[in-house]
Design a binder for these strands. Structure first.
Lengths: 205, 205
DNA sequence: TCGATTTTGGATTGTCAACTCCAAAAACTA
DNA sequence: TAGTTTTTGGAGTTGACAATCCAAAATCGA
């Protein structure tokens, strides 16, 4: 997953330390943003020294890239197994409820871990942008798979476009998350998701 | 518009200088984000000295707040007169096209000026969060006004909820803008907006 | 016009953040 | 077990950035 390309061979202990650093960085950057998190903050949180951190990451940008990858994994991972079976209105509804519930528990802090990183990094960090695009792509693909299953089973009208519906649903989700984060209430998230689900429902035979 | 509360009376020249500073800051912060824009950058861009900037703004945070207000004004202002007459499917379609067109011209850089600020500031800056919430509120209200007009004219089914539709449309727009910014293509924005418009259309009598 | 206020220039300060360096300890490998 | 590589500690360097200060010039109000 993490490019185990050139350079360092990592000892078991090394891998652990590296993972601890990325996890700490991800936590802090989710709460305070990338720019709001200093390398020193990460050192404290992960309980490592400066030389350790720079032993595993050439520069902050490289750490950020690792954080992006981790968050993409975690977000998609956390939605399993719901995400891989979005092939009925009931499943979609359950998934929707889980997302809304999670945001309420988090008090709408941080919004979407991927979305926040995307907004902060998309224009400034080309490498991060590509990783984020891939993360969204996987997310979209998972949704698409469920909708396509419904379509292929003949539960949707022939003129329905499951791929486009999946993309629209992801957009409704992201927009809803952002507005909910600003308003500190679930309303916009529910409205965004429910509208998209109703739109999908309108294509059922 | 800008709280002309206590303290400074501003000379005509003073107002101009202040406005120049805010405009310059808004430009830079839209391109590079708030954290990515130093006060010194703003000084250069606005052609003012440090003492001038700190004469008009107690601290960076205060400047940021002024930028938030300006962007809210500008975004809503730029969408007039389309925004104030979203009371037909044709009007909605025209508005949609204008948004998509603008993003293409901008090459998807920056995304939504309000949305980007929101994502960066919502959790860290309570004052900014409130201003941003108000900006989104005004936006939502404008959309709502158009949909309500359609509803009140009896063009929508009685069970339609124009307020919720307006909120959902804004969510679809924001999510579409974010995904388009990451992917550098219009697809997600079009998918998000079109789905919401189709959803609205489904309530027409 | 004159006195008060606002506006401006630009050097300066203090803090903090990214990153480097050297040397020692620990962990692998042959 | 000896040699090599990886891992760790922590002080140090460098630069950037937010914010301050002291005057001088311009503007305004009576």
């Amino acid at each position: 997953m993490d490019t185990p390309n050139q350079e360092h061979r990592l000892t078991r202990k090394g891998k652990e330390t590296r993972a601890r650093i990325v996890a700490a960085a991800a936590r802090l950057m989710f709460e305070r943003g990338v720019a709001g998190t200093s390398v020193e903050d990460v050192q404290r949180e992960a309980k490592v020294s400066a030389s350790q951190l720079y032993h595993y990451f050439k520069e902050k940008r490289e750490l950020v890239l690792a954080v992006v990858r981790l968050q993409c994994e975690q977000v998609l991972g956390a939605q399993e197994p719901l995400l891989s079976h979005l092939d009925s209105m009931e499943a979609l509804r359950t998934w929707r409820d889980a997302i809304v519930q999670l945001q309420i528990e988090r008090q709408f802090v941080g919004g979407c871990p991927i979305g926040s990183l995307a907004s902060e990094l998309a224009d400034a960090e080309p490498d991060a942008r590509l990783e984020l695009a891939e993360g969204f792509e996987l997310w979209e693909l998972a949704i698409r798979k469920g909708l396509r299953a419904m379509y292929d089973r003949g539960e949707m009208r022939p003129d329905a476009d499951p791929d486009r519906l999946a993309l629209a649903l992801l957009a409704g989700l992201q927009g809803g998350l952002l507005l909910a984060q600003v308003r500190k209430e679930a309303g916009p998230l529910e409205a965004g998701l429910d509208a998209m689900l109703a739109h999908i429902r309108s294509f059922l035979v």
